[in-house]
């Protein structure tokens, strides 16, 4: 999802586990939460840092495609809603960085890894938002896909991550609805608006499907994460659920999903659909998506341009503290 390519090992067979590892696994199996500073296998800690970090990076990079349209939102109310929503993404990034920090990595270290390309963010944010309906499509499809993954993650085994997800899910409940609300207006609007809505769906459909990550048969690495309950469902399960949920929603809008093979499968009680083009996915992940350069460039620029601001405030805080201390000494 927001952490599409987090690699972990295959699940360790029980007979190879140390007694500590066995006790740890049993706690997870009993549904206990693992809290900071408690013993955990190094692999668990590392995988979590990568996953939570990627998730956090996705939230803050994810501000950019929607942020594009804040200054062009078509009404004052739409402007306020969009701004509030993008602000929430920043907040969610902040909660997630905080969760990662409890694992002994600082936010600045994580940002450094993002900026240097050593950590990734979700492929979806490397696609452009080209018309106003894209803002609807992002809320409806991208947030819809994200929610599908985040709701089960509220039960993840790591306490701080689980608590961050609970807060995020609570706040995100309006995001998908506002997106669909835009789509409803556009789909029921002028022919030009309807064309924008269809265009947005055409461009975002497959990238949204890619958000769940490669097919289970190609991602052998998730077994350990599932045993540790830092991944709850498989990529394909979630993708199927997403398609089943979205098809009737598109139908209600009178828009068509850009997949000629889409067909109801009575036997499985779900829709059959075409796989996204995975070579495109890997190209985007490798840095060759339509907006990789702009997105990462914008984040690096914000960070570098802001250095004097962060340093200035820190310097003032230190000076003020020194003055307070001197005053106390003088008073004694």
């Amino acid at each position: 999802m927001y952490a599409q390519l987090v690699k972990s090992e295959g699940a360790k067979p029980r007979e190879e586990m140390t007694p500590e590892e066995i006790a740890f696994q049993e706690r997870i199996d009993r549904g206990e939460k693992i809290e900071p500073k408690e013993w955990m296998p190094e692999g668990y800690r590392k995988t979590l840092i990568r996953q939570i970090g990627q998730h956090a990076h996705s939230e803050i990079v994810g501000q950019l495609p929607e942020g594009n349209w804040i200054t062009r939102a078509p009404t004052l109310e739409r402007k306020a809603i969009l701004l509030a929503k993008v602000q929430d993404e920043a907040g969610h990034g902040l909660y997630l960085y905080s969760a990662a920090e409890t694992l002994g990595v600082s936010r600045d270290e994580l940002l450094e890894k993002l900026h240097s390309g050593n950590m990734k963010y979700s492929s979806i944010f490397n696609y452009p938002t080209l018309n106003w309906a894209d803002i609807g499509a992002v809320g409806w499809l991208v947030d819809g896909a994200a929610i599908m993954n985040q709701v089960p993650l509220q039960r993840t085994s790591y306490g701080p991550y689980s608590r961050a997800m609970i807060r995020i899910c609570k706040e995100e409940s309006f995001h998908q609805r506002q997106g669909y609300d835009i789509m409803m207006k556009m789909a029921a609007g002028t022919p030009e608006q309807k064309a924008m809505a269809q265009d947005a769906l055409n461009r975002f459909w497959y990238p949204a499907l890619m958000m769940f990550g490669p097919s289970d048969k190609d991602s052998v690495h998730s077994a350990q994460s599932m045993a540790w309950k830092i991944k709850i469902n498989t990529n394909d399960e979630l993708r199927q659920k997403f398609v089943d949920q979205t098809v009737p929603q598109a139908k209600y809008l009178g828009l068509s999903i850009p997949d000629e093979s889409l067909a109801w499968n009575e036997e499985k009680g779900g829709w059959d659909f075409s796989e996204p083009d995975w070579s495109e996915f890997f190209a985007v992940i490798a840095g060759n998506g339509p907006c990789n350069e702009e997105r990462l460039g914008a984040r690096v620029k914000a960070w570098e341009d802001g250095a004097w601001f962060r340093d200035g405030l820190m310097a003032h805080a230190e000076k003020a503290e020194a003055r307070r201390r001197a005053a106390r000494v003088a008073a004694e």
């Binding site: 803050i60 501000q63 950019l64 942020g67 804040i70 200054t71 004052l76 109310e77 402007k79 306020a80 701004l83 509030a84 993008v86 602000q87 920043a90 907040g91 990034g93 902040l94 960085y97 936010r107 914008a298 620029k301 914000a302 960070w303 341009d305 802001g306 250095a307 601001f309 962060r310």
Partner: peptide
């Protein structure tokens, strides 16, 4: 609101968005 996503630190991004939201609300 032009700063949204581009502020020097995450906390500031969030604070600025609040401010922009207040102003847009007042303008309405």
């Amino acid at each position: 609101s032009e700063w949204c996503g581009h502020a020097p630190v995450l906390e500031e991004d969030i604070a600025l968005a609040n401010q922009a939201l207040d102003l847009i609300g007042q303008c309405q």
